[in-house]
Computed example of a mutant assay.
Amino acid sequence: MGNVIDLGHGVRVAVTERKGGVSRPPFDSLNLGPGVGDARTAVLANRARAAEDLGFDVDHVVWMNQVHSTDVLVATEPGGVGTCDGVVTTRSDLVLASMAADCLPVLAADAVAGVLGAAHSGRLGTEGAIAATLVGAMVDQGARTDHIRVFLGPTICGSCYEVPPELQAQTAERTPEAASTTRWGTTGVDMLAAVTAQLRGAGVRDVTADGRCTLESPELFSHRRGAPTGRFASFIWRT
């Protein structure tokens, strides 16, 4: 389903993959996202399977109603935190989730202060620098930027994410690193480069990335490769 990565000081992250669930095509098979057309019973069963496989309680997960915003909320209990694309918590027993199928998951932790954060940075979120907003929200909860470690999940790469020139210019207006050239020689957006730059601009120095392109990796869901499709989840939690 996915590998667990140790970020140190008891913080772990994991990214789920397509196999291991009960969803039928085109959501086959470990779709964790509701609202894409899959059966609700299948999504709930998949979420329970993923949590068990990764070693945490599914009832401790915080889920966002993601809408490509730059809003960040504070989670004080598990379940649905509300409509947002970023969430932070200081509770040691909560698991934060960010779902995607080409957009960039952002998982962050200040293990010393006990603050976790997760965000969903799609094109609009990248344009609005939600990653930097997430860092600011974590600092508001007691984190220090020099203590924050960030793991960036899989996303469509700058060589594959083709957009019209006007959308490229709009996305790169605040973050020039967002502008890319695709493998076809057309205008594109590089969300991984842009978000990395935004995090460094916010004072975060410890940034690592999964590195896989969702469009090029068949083990991951990709909206551009085959919509409708499911959603994989990136989780962060403390042991």
Results as ranks from 00 to 15, higher is better:
218 P>Y: 02
205 R>I: 00
13 V>Y: 05
13 V>W: 01
18 R>Q: 02
5 I>Q: 05
73 L>S: 08
60 H>E: 15
136 G>C: 11
170 Q>P: 01
65 N>R: 15
40 R>F: 14
91 R>N: 08
53 D>M: 09
174 R>V: 03
98 S>P: 08
183 R>S: 15
136 G>M: 13
69 S>P: 14
131 A>C: 07
130 I>L: 15
86 G>T: 04
118 A>Y: 03
171 T>H: 03
183 R>Q: 15
1 M>I: 00
239 T>A: 15
190 D>I: 02
222 S>Y: 12
3 N>I: 00
116 L>M: 05
237 W>Q: 01
235 F>W: 03
14 A>Y: 00
232 F>E: 10
200 R>N: 08
224 R>M: 14
226 G>K: 12
155 T>L: 10
152 L>E: 06
173 E>S: 08
5 I>F: 04
72 V>I: 12
159 S>P: 00
88 V>M: 10
86 G>M: 09
236 I>G: 07
112 V>N: 14
44 L>V: 12
208 T>G: 04
147 H>S: 12
218 P>M: 03
165 P>E: 06
51 A>P: 05
230 G>A: 05
42 A>M: 11
50 A>F: 05
186 T>C: 04
202 A>S: 13
45 A>D: 15
191 M>L: 14
29 S>W: 02
36 V>A: 12
32 L>N: 00
185 G>T: 03
211 G>Q: 10
81 V>Y: 09
24 R>Y: 07
212 R>N: 08
168 Q>R: 02
87 V>H: 03
31 N>P: 01
92 S>H: 14
29 S>V: 01
42 A>I: 07
182 T>G: 01
188 G>P: 01
239 T>V: 14
225 R>I: 07
164 P>V: 06
92 S>I: 09
142 G>W: 14
148 I>N: 08
216 E>K: 10
142 G>S: 10
39 A>M: 11
77 E>I: 04
84 C>R: 06
75 A>N: 05
41 T>C: 10
206 D>L: 03
211 G>C: 10
61 V>K: 06
213 C>T: 04
175 T>Y: 07
201 G>E: 08
196 T>A: 10
58 V>C: 09
181 T>K: 07
115 V>L: 08
33 G>E: 02
45 A>G: 13
53 D>F: 14
190 D>Y: 06
142 G>Y: 13
17 E>S: 00
63 W>A: 07
200 R>L: 03
216 E>D: 14
113 A>T: 04
192 L>R: 13
123 R>V: 10
155 T>F: 11
145 T>Y: 13
6 D>T: 00
144 R>E: 15
149 R>L: 09
239 T>R: 13
217 S>M: 06
205 R>T: 12
21 G>Y: 03
165 P>Y: 00
48 A>P: 07
4 V>P: 08
2 G>H: 01
88 V>G: 09
238 R>S: 08
94 L>Q: 09
71 D>P: 10
192 L>V: 14
220 L>V: 03
226 G>D: 15
209 A>L: 04
2 G>Y: 01
192 L>W: 09
8 G>W: 00
171 T>Q: 06
124 L>K: 12
184 W>F: 13
184 W>S: 13
221 F>L: 02
232 F>T: 02
45 A>Y: 05
48 A>D: 15
150 V>D: 06
48 A>E: 15
90 T>V: 10
136 G>V: 11
58 V>P: 13
71 D>G: 12
10 G>M: 05
97 A>K: 03
218 P>H: 05
91 R>G: 06
68 H>S: 15
